[in-house]
């Protein structure tokens, strides 16, 4: 049903830490693996061993270079999957009701048996989070691993999205944004989590933590200066200092013990 729920009980989603993501694509492939075998049709690959391989993926890792005003160019790895928007335009455009937002937790899903593969929802999504599967002709998107997070066949600790469970760097966090005390809410507050393309007024649930400032050790600022004050200018002086320093060591022999 393409009417958006006026509110959802929970707001499940991801926090993605751009300061931590090393761009390893682990989340991309574990997502592919889980969702090929689970929810709905397999994620197909066309021409998989040929000249123009093109497959369906629900999560992709971009990378961007940012040139600060001064200093070296920075590189940011940027994973992107469905943001499970509060005002999800992909849902309201869907003519069949295949796209919907769950009232329990806000997860945006496609009911594949209702989908006619018109592609309009993908047109409506600003983030490129939906891909039409070439083999099955239905729309595919991140399910927030709805078939994992409540799955009683999985041990409790594994009831998180496949991409979160696998992320080696711990750059992906899963939780309930409706709860201000949740891990994801607190991270978002502490690190200034942001929305992507706020001007699109989709009100994404997923948040991105911006990279921390970089390259600040440029010169020996005043507080660091004393750290490198020479103990002496020549080696004779250095060995004089050494003798005294050795005597001062806590584990070293006391004066009367020595010689």
């Amino acid at each position: 049903m393409t009417t958006l729920p006026t509110s959802t009980d929970r707001k499940l989603g991801l926090v993605i830490d751009l300061d931590t993501c090393v761009g390893c694509h682990a989340c991309v492939i574990s997502c592919k693996g889980w969702n090929t075998e689970n929810y709905g049709a397999p994620l197909a690959d066309e021409d998989p061993y040929g000249a123009d391989p093109a497959g369906t993926f629900l999560n992709r890792v971009h990378s961007y270079e940012v040139q600060p005003e001064t200093g070296a160019t920075q590189l940011i790895h940027f994973p992107k999957s469905c943001l499970h928007c509060t005002d999800a335009p992909c849902v309201t455009v869907c003519p069949t009701g295949a796209s919907y937002k769950r009232v329990e937790d806000g997860i945006v899903l496609v009911n594949e048996s209702d989908c006619i593969g018109c592609g309009l929802c993908a047109w409506a999504c600003p983030y490129g989070a939906r891909e039409l599967d070439a083999a099955e002709g239905v729309m595919k998107k991140c399910t927030l691993c709805v078939d994992r997070i409540y799955n009683a066949h999985l041990p409790e600790e594994d009831r998180v999205p496949a991409c979160v469970r696998t992320c080696p760097a711990g750059a992906r966090h899963f939780g309930d944004f409706a709860d201000p005390e949740s891990h994801v809410s607190r991270l978002t507050a502490e690190r200034g989590g942001i929305d992507l393309m706020p001007e699109q007024e989709t009100r994404p649930v997923n948040k991105y933590l911006p990279p921390r400032p970089k390259d600040r050790l440029q010169e020996q600022v005043d507080i660091l200066a004393p750290l490198l004050a020479p103990v002496s200018e020549d080696s004779a002086g250095f060995f004089g200092w050494l003798d005294k320093a050795l005597d001062r060591l806590p584990g070293a022999p006391s004066k009367d013990e020595t010689r």
Binding site: M1, N38, Y100, V103, V146, Y150, N151, H153
Partner: peptide, 14 residues
């Protein structure tokens, strides 16, 4: 307008 949604098997065997 009422919001309706399909019922899903949230615990499929893995």
């Amino acid at each position: 307008m009422p919001h309706t949604q399909p019922s899903l098997d949230l615990s499929p065997p893995v």
